[in-house]
């Protein structure tokens, strides 16, 4: 039981750490490297491309990966308990 909670917590913390580094890093990048504020990608400014479009599919994929792993942990636990 303890190990189930520990594995789930590790997975959760990994997702949060990823979000902190990536999402938290974006304002920092804008602050430390002012050139990125006006950089242009495909005719659109970089901040608008990241915050207006790219961020959403990334969040969705992160959620999919999390759910797959969380269910795998639970399936292993269920099998372990069931076999006992």
């Amino acid at each position: 039981m303890h190990s189930l909670i520990q594995s789930q917590l590790r997975l959760t913390l990994a997702v949060i750490a990823g979000a902190v580094v990536i999402l938290g890093g974006i304002p920092l990048l804008f602050a430390l490297v002012p050139a990125t504020r006006t950089l242009s990608v495909l005719g659109l400014p970089l901040p608008w491309v990241i915050l207006g479009i790219v961020v959403y599919p990334v969040v969705y994929v992160a959620a999919r990966v999390y759910v797959r792993n969380a269910e795998r942990i639970e399936a292993e636990f269920t099998e372990f308990v069931g076999r006992r």
Binding site: I16, R37, P47, V55, V59
Partner: peptide
């Protein structure tokens, strides 16, 4: 302007945090 784009990003990422921390 651009700083306000974080509103919609935050409204969405809130569900990612909800998912990994409390949903199940």
């Amino acid at each position: 302007g651009a700083d306000m784009l974080w509103f919609s990003v935050g409204y969405t990422v809130g569900y990612l945090m909800l998912l990994v921390l409390v949903a199940a």
